[in-house]
Amino acid sequence: MVHTQHELLDSYRDELDLFSIWMKNKGMTKATQRAYLSDTMHFLHAAYPAEVKKLTKMDVMRFMSACREKGAGDEARNRKLSALRAFFKALIELEQLEANPAALIAKSKQEKNKIPSYLEEDELEAFIHMLGGKHYGRNLCIVLLMAYAGLRVGEVHRMNVHDFQADGSIHILGKGRKWRVIPLPEQIQAVLRQAIEERVGAKQGKEQPMFVSQFGRRLSIRMIQTVADDAFKRLKADMPSLAPKRMSSHKLRHSFATMQIRSGTDIRTLQELLGHASIETTQIYTHIDNKQLQNAMNNIAAKIYVPVQKYT
């Protein structure tokens, strides 16, 4: 049955409004709220015109199966399932439902220890040289914070001027609304101070966002991604060997973690720097450095004894 977005919203407006309120009260980021609402709308589009209270585990499984048939990977399906679990949980907590039909559906098994792509140190230097334009100082600061302090795009987006402390550290609001402190190297401190001096005055109430657009508004996540994407395009044109690699702003964070491991940073410290809730998430970076494996084997090369084989 073909139905319009307007019909869908009319049918499920109350449930979606309650879900939005619930997510805000849980302190979810705006990006998470948008993603969860989008995935929930996708599901309700498939379930229409059934009432939410009559939806079952089979309806959710049928939707997940349809997503697979249309080419959605494990990660995408797991994200959709997380959104639906949250949607039904919200309605239960708000006394609109009694059971969560998505709660007992198993997530798809994802490939473990998948090696993330990253830039080598010389490639990272070349990438930074690709920055330019009218807002060079601001853009340089953004890239340095992702590449040499390991910040996520959303964390750069949420930064305010007062998050940069007098002692040279930055206080970062990460996933799960957890704060962490990152002591910045002096080189990045200097660039950040310069960027603050040059920034356009913000026009957003009491908040003073660290990075603003030419119109004085907090720089959007998409614009921060675009700063990196444009530099990656120029880098690939200059270094054709990188052309097959999928590059995005998040790869700068991977590059930071790789450099930390190579420099001997222990896994617990790296977990704190990256703001990972679980050490398992951080441990992937202990597996990605083939150079360390080679160096480890080279360390014992001189100690290997192989007897000369005697033939009779």
Results as ranks from 00 to 15, higher is better:
L8M: 04
L8C: 02
L9K: 01
D10F: 00
S11T: 03
Y12F: 01
Y12R: 00
D14I: 08
L16F: 05
S20I: 06
W22F: 13
K24Q: 11
K24D: 14
K24H: 12
K26R: 15
G27H: 03
M28C: 15
T29Y: 08
K30Q: 13
T32F: 09
Q33C: 09
A35I: 09
L37V: 05
L37Y: 05
S38I: 10
D39N: 11
H45P: 00
P49D: 07
P49F: 02
A50C: 06
L55R: 07
L55H: 08
T56P: 05
K57W: 03
K57M: 10
V60N: 02
M61A: 15
M64I: 15
A66W: 14
C67I: 12
A72N: 15
G73F: 09
D74I: 07
E75M: 15
A76W: 11
L81Y: 04
A83M: 02
L84P: 02
R85Q: 04
R85L: 00
K89L: 09
L94F: 09
E95D: 15
Q96I: 06
Q96H: 12
Q96E: 15
A99L: 13
A99I: 14
P101K: 09
A102Q: 12
L104W: 11
K107W: 05
E111L: 12
E111I: 10
I115D: 00
P116W: 01
S117V: 08
Y118F: 15
L119G: 00
E121C: 00
D122W: 10
D122A: 12
L124I: 06
L124Q: 13
F127N: 09
N139Y: 03
L140R: 10
C141L: 01
I142A: 03
I142G: 05
L144R: 06
L144A: 00
M146R: 01
A147W: 05
Y148K: 13
A149P: 07
G150A: 08
L151Y: 00
R152W: 00
G154C: 00
E155G: 01
V156L: 02
H157Y: 04
M159N: 04
M159Y: 03
H162K: 14
D163C: 02
D163R: 01
D163V: 00
F164V: 03
D167I: 00
G168L: 01
I172K: 03
I182M: 13
Q187M: 13
Q187D: 08
Q187W: 12
I188Y: 07
I188R: 06
Q189L: 04
V191Q: 08
L192T: 02
R193F: 05
E197H: 14
K203I: 08
K203T: 11
Q204S: 13
G205K: 12
K206G: 06
E207N: 10
R217N: 14
L219R: 06
I221D: 09
R222E: 05
Q225K: 05
V227P: 04
D229T: 11
A231N: 13
A231P: 11
K233Y: 12
K233I: 14
R234V: 07
R234D: 12
L242K: 08
R246Q: 10
M247W: 14
S249G: 07
S255G: 09
F256A: 11
F256V: 14
I261P: 06
T265E: 12
T265Q: 06
L270C: 01
Q271E: 02
E272N: 01
L274T: 01
T281A: 09
T282F: 08
I284S: 05
Y285M: 07
T286K: 03
Q292G: 15
Q292N: 08
N295C: 05
N295T: 11
A296E: 11
I300S: 02
K310M: 11
Y311G: 08
